[in-house]
Design a protein around this nucleic acid. Structure first.
Lengths: 348, 348
DNA sequence: GTGAAAGCGCTAACAC
DNA sequence: GTGTTAGCGCTTTCAC
């Protein structure tokens, strides 16, 4: 049981050569059916396990891809990864996951690690902190296909799969307006992350479209974490004139604000209607359930994987493309004022 | 920029041999400091990237480990993975993550995939569905170190890192009793998963210790998902005599039940106090915040990684061990009756 | 339809 | 302190 069987062992047993065994196992047309069957059977008997490392060395490809995301335990990223795996595992690729934890330093280390692991491709979503992109150029210098998703910059000419964040912001805001909100606050993230800028533009344009002014004092910038939402909620509480709607670029910040506001007796959605962003799994666990924008994460994973596979097929003369997915507004109780909630808490 | 530099390229440039380069890069003591410096400098200049695949083939180890968990987007598993990575990345290992989605079939495929990827070790938590363990024996047959965590069976003689589920169940239940509960319901999972059996035993023993009867009709078995909690909540609602406490083996089921009970005007924790299990990240986002048992996930990840590293060092005559971590009761508002909540919603 | 031989890039035992 | 050599397990070109 100790020494692993190789194609040479199989060859010796059958009194043929390793090349024949190799070809037989790959179903090479030049090998006779009888030999193929024999080889396959013997391989199974001997509990042969192909050594993918040797193949990788020989073929110059590892059949590994690296995915770098801020964190694994957020619904959005977790399910992108699952989407990627669903496609790639069928093509015999394995996925290595690295978490940047939104730190520029970790991101640099991770990229080094992935390149060292000889991955055949890297799929990455920027860390929030990242403003310097030289380590990404390193990937391109190594001729490793790079696909950016979710967060990205425009100045790289690489494949990208994103959602239409502008539309997400627009739809969320317009929905609040339709629910009767006239004074809508927006919670946004760091300005160097384009998704937040785009959502903000959507927010602003929706206001303008309906004839409302865009007020800078209504826009609160933060890291969009739970704690930031809490702090902003406290600020709102102290305003002489409460807003009647909140569109937050993050579910976490939204929930933080809601917690504070609820404590002071403010009714959600009657006094303030709230829409978050990302459709995190907790959004239908909280009370009231949180309206949000779904980012089509699994679909995004599929797109990423397929883009990669296409890229691998047309080796030369490949032109990077950008796929834009359409997000979906999920209306739940935190923003539903007009009709009595048709959604019950079981529904997603 | 196209062809990758190898140690031979460096060797040629410096008019030395590849072995010297290899040794220099590994900081081998037999190489003179001057050569080392020269080699390292030239390597950097030529943008040399070691080919870990070649090294892997030569050394017979891939420096990859595989982690198989039910799902990535649960706080508990996500942070185990992070714990593992924190330790292993320092030892130049990379982590491949596979998700079983609690399916026996997926688990089998994943194990095949990992073995094919030539991982140096597999860390796994059983799928809930799994009752047949032959595919795990396959791992041992391939001489690949296996470490089980969280969920496990006793009949395998392999390394294991678990928490003391019995104590978790006991502490949760005793806490409810101390808060004045006299009629505590328990939500448990499938009987073939030992963690649920252990938590149930803890529940029962706590009741007995305090002189309460263990009533079979107070124990509800399910898959412990949100929906199951909702169904059980509805059942409880219809009882002639409501319970005054719930200990759920899952935060999700707990929250499902709470949602239903709140809807019928039942006050949490005044009417029914609730404790969940796992310290999922949403537990301090819901209202009331959910008391729960923290499973020390990051620490568990560290233990798993260190166990693996130890195992790799003592190659022969290795005796598997079992590490048991102590869980921690986190008291939040869903179970705190006696004193007025000292915890505020910001605290974790 | 099958075999012989070379080589992917690296490491390490053995020389000196 | 450095060079020589062989080989990890596989694939593939070139023979026949």
């Amino acid at each position: 049981m100790n020494k692993k069987t190789t194609i040479h062992d199989i060859a010796k047993k059958l009194d043929i050569t390793a090349s024949t065994v190799s070809r037989a196992l790959q179903d090479n047309p030049r090998i006779s059916d009888s030999t193929k069957k024999l080889v396959v059977k013997t391989a199974r008997q001997m509990n042969y396990q192909p050594n993918s490392i040797a193949a990788a060395l020989r073929n110059g490809k590892s059949n590994l891809v690296g995915v770098m995301i801020p964190t694994v335990d957020r619904n959005f990223f977790g399910s992108i990864v699952r989407g990627i795996e669903e496609i790639l595992n069928d093509s015999d690729y394995n996925v290595i996951i690295c978490q940047s934890e939104d730190s520029h330093e970790k991101e640099k280390t991770n990229i080094k690690t992935l390149l060292k692991a000889q991955v055949d491709g890297i799929f990455a979503s920027y860390a929030k902190e990242t403003v310097d992109f030289r380590h990404y150029e390193e990937i391109l210098n190594h001729n490793v296909p790079l696909i950016l998703f979710d967060r990205m910059q425009n100045h790289f000419d690489v494949d990208a799969v994103v959602i239409d964040d502008y539309k997400g912001g627009f739809d969320a805001t317009e929905h609040l307006i339709e629910q009767g909100c006239r004074n809508i606050v927006h919670l946004t993230g760091p300005d160097n992350v384009s998704i937040y800028k785009d959502r903000k533009r959507g927010y602003e344009d929706a206001l303008r479209k309906h004839g409302f002014p865009v007020l800078q004092e209504n826009i609160y910038q933060s890291d969009l974490k739970l704690e930031a939402g809490i702090r902003i909620g406290e600020k709102l509480n102290k305003l002489s004139k409460l807003p009647d709607g909140i569109f937050s670029s993050s579910d976490y910040a939204a929930i933080g604000a809601i917690q504070v506001l609820k404590k002071s007796g403010i009714k959600i959605p009657q006094d303030i209607a709230v829409v978050g962003f990302s459709n995190e799994s907790f959004t239908n666990l909280v009370d009231p359930s949180l309206s949000t924008i779904d980012q089509k994460s699994k679909k995004m994973g599929h797109f990423i994987a397929n883009t990669f596979l296409e890229r691998m097929n047309k080796k030369e003369s490949y032109t990077p493309s950008r796929k834009v997915l359409t997000p979906e507004l999920i209306v739940r109780n935190s923003s539903l004022r007009k009709e009595h909630s048709k959604q019950n808490f079981i529904k997603n």
